[in-house]
Design a protein around this nucleic acid. Structure first.
Lengths: 213, 213
DNA sequence: CCTGTTATTGATCAAGTGATCAATAGAGTT
DNA sequence: AACTCTATTGATCACTTGATCAATAACAGG
């Protein structure tokens, strides 16, 4: 048994150490924001010297950008997988709205919002943000187009509608980040708004399936 | 004619100097973000020693919070004044949506987004953000309630709908900050979404007044 | 058991931050 | 003209940041 932790960190395979660093950065970003990712903070969490973190990354900006991508891509994949189980486009869209508004991923929302700002001074991050936004938009566009093909939705521009829905979701989540109270029935309001945009039947997207209040 | 600027800044009345500092901070925030507000950057813009800026503020966090309030309150007042000219609630709401989506205030949007993140580490700023969000919501709620009173809107919860519209606008603007292209007819899509939420007649809010595409 | 490769260290540098405060000097008052 | 008040200075401190790199030590292959 050792009282004080070992002076020197165990030597590990580069891939393993890189994974540890990525994981530490991910946790830091979710807990304290992307701005909390520094050479020293990440190193401390992994239990290595700061120089080692620098050794595994060209610079901190890249680590921040990679961390953002890791976090956000996982969310997109998770939600997309959830949707894949449902066959009916209106059901898929309803689940999508419901899931993204449930407040279970507010830490990810915080990362999104921070990335929008940090992207101004971190070109690599800005590129990641654009790429991940495209990924989200693609997921939404898929659902909208499937609904159109099935004759359940009707809109002349699925791509634009998908962008619009994405923007609304982002805004409502960002709002929830700052202000929880005061807003009732977020899901129902959004569902009605989206029904109008995609040309779905009234009530087709309301989570509980209740057509009217 | 003097080649080099005077060593010492002219002595001014405290209120005047304070105004200069506030204005410099405002410009910096709009041009380079709230994070660009530092004792030295503000001092340099005013043409004064850094110590003087500190002399006029308890700390930098307060200056950032005040600057945010100044910028955002001016926007709210400006738009509210615009609306006041129109008597008809649907027209007011249409103008509101149209104005906020026209991209003329993207610099203010950037300040909003940054404040959401910075508020995490600046309690004074967080309080300002909440307060200014409330102010915006009140403007929107007013319009919605006027429409209900006039029998042109129909919704059981004007306050929640106002919050919802605000969130959507914020999200769409934040999106525009990062990605301009790909989205067509933002105004029309949003107008339709809002029509659904406030229970207005189809086409009542479309900017050009065209009921259908 | 050597020996070469390289993962790891930690001190170091330059740059930037907020904050403090004794010293200075400008402007109004007497 | 002397004086008083205070706006203004700028050096200074303690701290944090990203980055660099010579030195160290652990592991693998011969």
């Amino acid at each position: 048994m050792s009282s004080t932790p070992p002076r020197r960190a165990a030597r590990k395979a580069p891939s393993e150490r890189a994974a540890e660093i990525a994981e530490a950065a991910r946790e830091l970003a979710l807990e304290r924001g992307l701005a909390a990712i520094t050479l020293r903070s990440v190193a401390a969490r992994v239990g290595v010297a700061s120089g080692l973190v620098a050794h595994y990354q060209p610079n901190v900006d890249a680590l921040v950008a990679d961390t953002f991508t890791t976090i956000v891509a996982a969310e997109t994949a998770e939600v997309a997988a959830l949707l894949a189980r449902l066959p009916d486009p209106p059901q898929r869209l309803a689940l999508l709205l419901d899931t993204l508004l449930d407040g279970a991923r507010l830490d990810v929302t915080a990362v999104w919002v921070e990335a929008w700002t940090l992207g101004r001074r971190n070109e690599a991050l800005a590129a990641s943000v654009r790429s991940q936004m495209d990924a989200w938009q693609a997921v939404l566009q898929d659902v909208v187009e499937a609904g159109i093909a099935a004759g359940q939705f009707e809109t002349p521009d699925a791509a634009s509608v998908a962008w619009q829905i994405l923007g609304m979701i982002d805004g409502l989540n960002a709002q929830a980040l700052v202000r929880w109270d005061g807003v009732n029935d977020r899901g129902v309001h959004l569902a009605r708004a989206v029904e109008g945009m995609v040309g779905a039947a009234r009530g087709a997207l309301v989570p509980g399936g209740l057509p009217q209040a």
